[in-house]
Amino acid sequence: MTATEILFWFLSILALFSALMVLISKNPVHSVLWLIVVFFAISGHYILLNAQFLTIVNLIVYAGAIMVLFLFVIMLMNLNSNTEPQRNSLIKLAGVIGGCLLLTVMVSAVRSAGEVSNNRALMNEGDIGLIQNLGKILFTQYVVPFELSSVLFLSAMVGAVVIGKKE
């Protein structure tokens, strides 16, 4: 095993373990903190793929901004264990089945996609994740989807302001 492989297994196990802990934890604040660990592990995977820009943006946006807002909301809610509504077992079963079906669809979609089926991930090489190459491709080849998604963000922001202003 090389150092990269050791890191890969360590990060994978960390990601899976903390993702499980997000679901298992009784306390919602603990769930949020475990979710932050998941983001860190995934960012570690990005570093192994030599995509430093994605790593840092993942940390800034998800761990640094979105999860802080999550913590905000959860800390302000006065959550007691007995106020949590108990769902009946039929709904739980339906949730499990639905989740498994979604997983099957997603895994088969990824496996059958022509672009990934014959390719292996480039470890420690490949420079598409570096900021210069990523920026050039985003602003030339994919400029229309990029701008469209920014309009989408703008509309979400306007929507949030409208909802916030409404009394």
């Binding site: 820009f53 840092i56 940390l59 800034i60 640094g64 901004a65 802080v68 570096l130 900021i131």
Partner: peptide, 20 residues
């Protein structure tokens, strides 16, 4: 690292967790 400033930003934005 070739993303030096962004790294600083990431750490600064994580710094708030200690306080929270």
């Amino acid at each position: 690292v070739n993303i030096g400033i962004l790294y600083v930003f990431a750490i600064v934005s994580l710094g708030i967790y200690g306080v929270m």
